[in-house]
Amino acid sequence: MDDRTPIQDTPLTVAGRTLHSRLIIGTGKYQSYEQNARALEASGAQMITVALRRVNLSDPSQPRLVDHIDPQKYVFLPNTAGCFTGEDAVRTLRLAREAGGWSLVKLEVLSDPKHLYPDMAETLRATDMLVKEGFDVMVYCSDDPVYARKLEDAGACAIMPLGAPIGSGLGIQNPVNIRLIIEEAKVPVIVDAGVGTASDAAVAMELGCDGVLMNTAIAEAKDPVRMARAMKHAVIAGREAYLAGRMAKKRYADPSSPLAGLI
């Protein structure tokens, strides 16, 4: 046992914004915006991803996200879901910046709708374009440490490698790579996509990630509000375990009670 003072944690800060929760949640796939709002409340998250889409002209009175989730209270992170080129992403985020009035965005440039894996060459090009336009860009990316470095060099304000394919709920498939990315990065690393249940989020945080972004794991749980609460605790638990520093793994048993003084 050593007597080091406990490691004090500092909150997650992305592009100058301080977040008191390391959990970021998506707002897609919920049964209603009302359910979404309740899950968000239960999750304790302060940042949510949102998409930008055409308004419904045939029924302008349809429920609106901003009527249920207050942009003054939560940080809205507009995404580029559905964009397949840098130009599409820039066009979408220029509109998002006008709609919201802020420049912090999530870039995702996908390739094939079947696996939704990011097109990394195009993602890097789009990052460069957006940074030059003054955006603060959090970048969804593959778990490739080489590309993660290139994104950081291009000015990404957060690196967001996937844990597993979007919406798959398979958990962290390549902890070795995620760990390498964390060790190399000087900007926050947030696992984005692939979390299926609370233990997956804890695993990501135990690897030393700065945060976890998830959508489907909460939205498609049987009880999304309860799962949101579970995720809140899992992210805290994983972070605490990471900071506490886990014990070494051993090949054999090691009794917890003293062997001396046995009667």
Binding site: G26, V50, A51, L52, V55, L65, A81, G100, I166, N215
Partner: peptide, 10 residues
């Protein structure tokens, strides 16, 4: 004209 707004997304 393209008229857009924020909707739920991941």
């Amino acid at each position: 004209l393209e008229i857009v707004h924020f909707v739920g997304g991941g």
